[in-house]
């Protein structure tokens, strides 16, 4: 079974660009933009994690159920979404992320 990467990626990237532009142009509040993408990352995480967890249990117990294959498919598709939304999460919280890594960089420079 081949997995689609573009099908989940395009709407997510387009959606993020739209809400980002709306926020930049002052049409929506920053808090709404952030909350929306935090909610999306949470949903993607729950579906990916939940499906992965179920698959792991089924795998370990050696149970084959008819939903195993579609479950794996949706696990992968939502995983791709999670990866992209995770990158956007870093973009949204770039300042604190930079701070998190900059401290590490400074330490390595000192040593």
């Amino acid at each position: 079974m081949a997995y689609d990467i573009l099908i989940p990626s395009i709407p997510v990237i387009a959606g993020y660009l739209i809400t980002y532009l709306l926020y930049k142009n002052g049409l929506i509040k920053k808090s709404l933009h952030i909350s929306l993408w935090n909610f999306i990352i949470m949903v993607a995480f729950l579906i990916t994690g939940g499906a992965g967890f179920l698959l792991l249990i089924l795998l370990d117990m050696g149970i084959t159920v008819p939903i195993s294959t579609p479950l794996l498919y949706w696990h992968v598709e939502f995983g791709v979404t999670l990866l992209l939304v995770g990158i956007f999460h870093f973009h949204i919280y770039w300042k604190s992320s930079r701070y998190m890594f900059s401290r590490m960089k400074k330490r390595s420079e000192r040593t």
């Binding site: 792991l56 370990d60 117990m61 050696g62 149970i63 084959t64 195993s68 294959t69």
Partner: peptide, 11 residues
């Protein structure tokens, strides 16, 4: 998550 009852390919 027990290995005891693995009989066929889960995938």
């Amino acid at each position: 998550a027990s290995d005891s009852c693995a009989l066929s390919c889960p995938y």
